[in-house]
Design a protein around this nucleic acid. Structure first.
Lengths: 127, 127
DNA sequence: TCCATCCTTCGACACTTGTAGAAGGTAGGC
DNA sequence: GCCTACCTTCTACAAGTGTCGAAGGATGGA
């Protein structure tokens, strides 16, 4: 499930909102995009066609909600990136990340904490 | 400098090889793509047009080499991903990475080591 | 000299993505 | 009963991507 730039914008709104009409999505993206109503409607229809969102008619209007989970979409996107640009291995990617991406202190601290948690979790299950 | 799927494949060859003719690139990608010679040539021409590669004629044939650095392309690609899919913050992305990507012990260790290095580096210069 | 080989440039076509106008249904307010 | 304000579906079109085939130039060996 690869999403295009514009599709990500829409999906981000759906994930945040839970469910939303085309009008809601449009409102949420005003300022960021300046899209016309029909542009949003077209994107939503395409997302439903490709199985990323679902549509339900409520009254006279359609209400949309995400069908793919955000986490799944994120993982797919990251996997695609790693595949294309980092030789297909998480190892290579992780290396680039810390070697070249200049995380700030706060980010490093967060990462450290998460690593600790992951470490602890990985250690459990055996005893 | 956003590269498409096919463009990444070509650029990866150029980065690895240093420089290569269209034929070289084709050979390097046989098995992976099954592209026709002209397909590769077209992609190379387009890459030159968009400034990602450069072309030099040697004898009767053109030889290509990367113009954008691999690291730069990788950083741009990662930045685009973070922007679209992770709310634009490295923090959010890093969180996803450790929380959802099931890194193996080796990857976590690498991350830890690199993090330590970064920490040490950040700590210097002050005392 | 002439052919098999390569290389090159042009042009083309289908599909995806980004954007949106036109035209037509509906439902509440006056 | 009719107008205003929404909503919907259809259609379109320009770029960008992915994939070549055709046609023509050079070149080295038979």
């Amino acid at each position: 499930m690869q999403l295009s730039e514009a599709e990500w914008k829409i999906m981000n709104v759906l994930w945040r909102a839970g469910s939303a009409s085309a009008r809601d999505v449009l409102d949420a993206l005003q300022g960021e995009t300046g899209w016309a109503y029909t542009t949003v409607k077209t994107m939503l229809t395409r997302l439903v066609e490709k199985g990323a969102a679902r549509e339900k008619t409520v009254g006279q209007a359609a209400v949309y909600s995400a069908k793919v989970q955000q986490k799944a979409a994120q993982r797919a996107a990251l996997a695609a990136l790693v595949e294309r640009a980092f030789g297909g291995t998480m190892g290579g990617f992780v290396h680039h990340l810390v070697a070249n991406e200049k995380l700030d202190a706060k980010e490093r601290a967060a990462l450290q904490k998460l690593l600790d948690d992951a470490q602890r979790e990985a250690g459990e299950g055996a005893p």
